[in-house]
Simulated scan of single mutants.
Amino acid sequence: MPEGHSVHRIARQFGLHFVGHPVRVSSPQGRFVDGAARLDGHTITEARAVGKQMFLRFDNDLWLRVHLGIYGAWDFAGDITVDATVAAANGRMGQTNQRGTVADQDGANGSESSLSSIGAPRRTRLRMAEQEKLEEPIDVFPPEPIGAVRVRLLTDDAVADLRGPTACEVLTPDQVEATIAKLGPDPLEVDAAEGEERFVSVVRRKPTPIALLLMDQGVVSGIGNVYRAELLFRARLNPHTPGKLVPEQTLRELWRDWTRLLATGVATGQMLTMDDLDPDDYRKALASRDDRHWVYHRAGLPCRVCGTNIVMEELGGRKLYWCPRDQA
């Protein structure tokens, strides 16, 4: 399932290429015909990510809410930018300016993302979900929909196809605010101090294990299985510790660390959770998940700090990775 950094990157792609443009909205699959009709022909005015959910506002005061879930993905094609975050920061799009930032073979080795350049050729195709995959350039625009496309958003220069989402619905402003109100704070969406206080105050009231609380989108937005394991290891925190027994300062450090890791994920497109890497190790970490994490997906392998074998267990229906010594 895409974690928070992926959804923010998708929202920024929409911000670059769809916001400010009238959009033709359709449902090639046929399951979103009524919703598409309510949005068709209107201009997108805002793209917003909150945790694992994205919201697109249209000029008729309606919003499109999308939650990708486990199987959802956006396919972008046309005059698009591979790394929308970098392009937005630099005020450019579609320029190939740094080959080799991520290894070209990245998509074949189980990484969370698979970009091979910051820029992109025009008339290209990019899939954005848990992973990001640059595909073959297209010869005809718009390309024919591939697979069961729930909704297609089309401008004169770009197209976005949504497939397999958990949620795809049209909401009013009040409904959007009600939905967001149920979510925990997202470091990129709220004032840092306010978000920290909300997170700390909620967790300190809960007897639930901290490993489950970090995955609860009503407690904090955007954290998934990878970031959960890595945050707990970085804090040297036993995942079974009840939230109310975690020291307040540790909770504050957890929130601040999540803020840092989320910003890194948005900037790089990778869930990069190891700090202070030398240039060679940094390149390896960007290219391969095996060199990117402290404990995630390392069951049975020695801890990078103490040498104790990393444990994997089922908790809340998800795999949890942790070091039984450093996180004792």
Rank of each mutant, 00 (worst) to 15 (best):
R92Y: 01
L134K: 00
I118S: 02
T155A: 10
R92D: 01
V151C: 15
P165I: 08
D139A: 03
R127K: 13
E135K: 06
A148H: 03
I118P: 02
A88R: 15
V151Q: 11
I146D: 05
T101H: 11
E136W: 09
P121Y: 00
D156P: 12
I138P: 09
A158E: 07
L154T: 12
M93V: 07
R122P: 12
A108T: 15
A129Y: 12
V82P: 01
D161P: 14
A108V: 11
G94S: 00
I146V: 02
T166C: 11
P145W: 02
I118T: 04
F141L: 07
I118H: 01
Q98G: 06
T166H: 13
S114K: 05
S111Q: 06
A88Y: 09
R92F: 01
L126P: 13
P137H: 04
T124F: 00
L134S: 00
G91K: 09
G110I: 10
A88D: 04
A84P: 15
P145G: 01
V102F: 02
P145R: 07
N97M: 09
Q131T: 14
D83W: 13
N90E: 15
L126C: 05
G94M: 00
P145N: 03
L134T: 05
T124I: 01
Q105P: 03
K133P: 03
S113E: 09
L115G: 00
S116Y: 07
A84Q: 11
T124R: 00
E136C: 01
G100M: 00
